[in-house]
Simulated assay, not measured.
Amino acid sequence: MRADAKKNRSQILTVARDVVAEHGADASMRDIARRAGVGLATLLRHFPTREALFEALLCTHLDALTQKADELETSTSADQALLSWFRELVAFTQGYRGVVAMMAAAHTNPDSALYASCAAVHEAGARLLLRAQGEGTARADMNGDDLFALITALGWAVDQPSFASRADRLVDLVTSAILTSRPGSDAKKTMG
């Protein structure tokens, strides 16, 4: 790819992130092109459909979330790793209003360009959950599919204007249902 084409593609993605953050999945392709300082034809050469643009935006972030899970897996306690990663994934879904449905659909559609990235995120979350379960700090009766479904449901809920202001509270409620008391914590001592 020529240097000017790379620059245009990068500029389009940068602007698209901002426009999608403002307007959600219904962001205007024409508005993105105008704000990026390129013609609509240039945008469409790089991203022939709205889905192609969203795939480029989401794959980058989903891949970063997978990498984050890998880092957390070796750098912090199992329950804190799961909690940190869960919060980052929910924050990601908040930053891209309307994309939770795209992620949920891609998760089960091998033909989707998002499939590989969604599958990697799903697997990363499942690994973090298994590690926490192994240390006794997460519910033993759930699996990676349950975790992904909870993240998807929470992402959808905080995407709604009536729940957006409660996002942190909802994350706390859901994660407290996933994570159990740490071995030796005061909460466990007072219960036993």
Rank of each mutant, 00 (worst) to 15 (best):
residue 22 E to C: 00
residue 140 A to P: 01
residue 32 I to P: 00
residue 51 E to F: 12
residue 56 A to M: 03
residue 177 A to I: 12
residue 96 Y to H: 12
residue 45 R to Q: 06
residue 34 R to C: 00
residue 84 S to T: 15
residue 66 T to V: 10
residue 155 G to M: 00
residue 100 V to R: 07
residue 22 E to I: 05
residue 187 A to H: 11
residue 147 L to H: 04
residue 65 L to K: 10
residue 93 T to E: 11
residue 88 E to Y: 07
residue 92 F to H: 14
residue 12 I to R: 04
residue 156 W to C: 15
residue 89 L to D: 04
residue 11 Q to N: 12
residue 20 V to R: 03
residue 14 T to N: 08
residue 75 S to T: 11
residue 127 R to F: 04
residue 154 L to I: 05
residue 67 Q to Y: 08
residue 79 D to S: 13
residue 73 E to D: 11
residue 72 L to Q: 07
residue 171 V to E: 07
residue 192 G to I: 08
residue 168 D to N: 10
residue 55 E to F: 10
residue 190 T to R: 15
residue 126 A to Q: 06
residue 50 R to M: 07
residue 3 A to H: 11
residue 130 L to K: 11
residue 47 F to E: 02
residue 165 S to Y: 15
residue 53 L to Q: 05
residue 36 A to W: 14
residue 68 K to E: 13
residue 140 A to D: 09
residue 7 K to F: 00
residue 186 D to P: 04
residue 26 D to M: 13
residue 9 R to Q: 12
residue 178 I to H: 05
residue 5 A to Q: 11
residue 71 E to R: 13
residue 146 D to I: 12
residue 23 H to A: 07
residue 112 S to Q: 00
residue 15 V to G: 04
residue 102 M to V: 01
residue 8 N to F: 00
residue 149 A to L: 10
residue 174 V to L: 09
residue 163 F to Y: 14
residue 172 D to L: 02
residue 153 A to P: 05
residue 62 L to T: 03
residue 158 V to I: 09
residue 142 M to C: 10
residue 76 T to Y: 01
residue 9 R to A: 13
residue 156 W to S: 15
residue 111 D to W: 06
residue 55 E to Y: 09
residue 46 H to L: 04
residue 1 M to V: 15
residue 175 T to V: 13
residue 167 A to V: 00
residue 101 A to N: 06
residue 138 A to P: 07
residue 147 L to S: 01
residue 45 R to G: 03
residue 66 T to M: 00
residue 176 S to C: 03
residue 8 N to R: 12
residue 74 T to M: 05
residue 26 D to I: 15
residue 178 I to A: 03
residue 112 S to H: 06
residue 66 T to P: 02
residue 147 L to T: 03
residue 94 Q to K: 12
residue 134 G to I: 01
residue 9 R to C: 13
residue 42 T to A: 07
residue 163 F to P: 00
residue 47 F to T: 08
residue 21 A to L: 02
residue 60 T to E: 15
residue 180 T to E: 09
residue 1 M to Y: 11
residue 79 D to G: 12
residue 55 E to A: 07
residue 111 D to C: 00
residue 41 A to L: 01
residue 74 T to V: 07
residue 12 I to P: 02
residue 13 L to N: 05
residue 136 G to A: 04
residue 55 E to P: 06
residue 102 M to E: 09
residue 15 V to Q: 08
residue 175 T to Y: 05
residue 146 D to F: 13
residue 44 L to S: 13
residue 102 M to L: 15
residue 91 A to G: 14
residue 71 E to H: 14
residue 16 A to G: 09
residue 102 M to S: 13
residue 88 E to Q: 13
residue 108 T to Y: 06
residue 103 M to W: 04
residue 172 D to I: 01
residue 148 F to N: 01
residue 43 L to I: 06
residue 36 A to F: 13
residue 69 A to D: 03
residue 143 N to V: 05
residue 182 R to L: 07
residue 139 R to T: 03
residue 22 E to R: 15
residue 29 M to C: 03
residue 112 S to F: 02
residue 32 I to W: 09
residue 103 M to N: 12
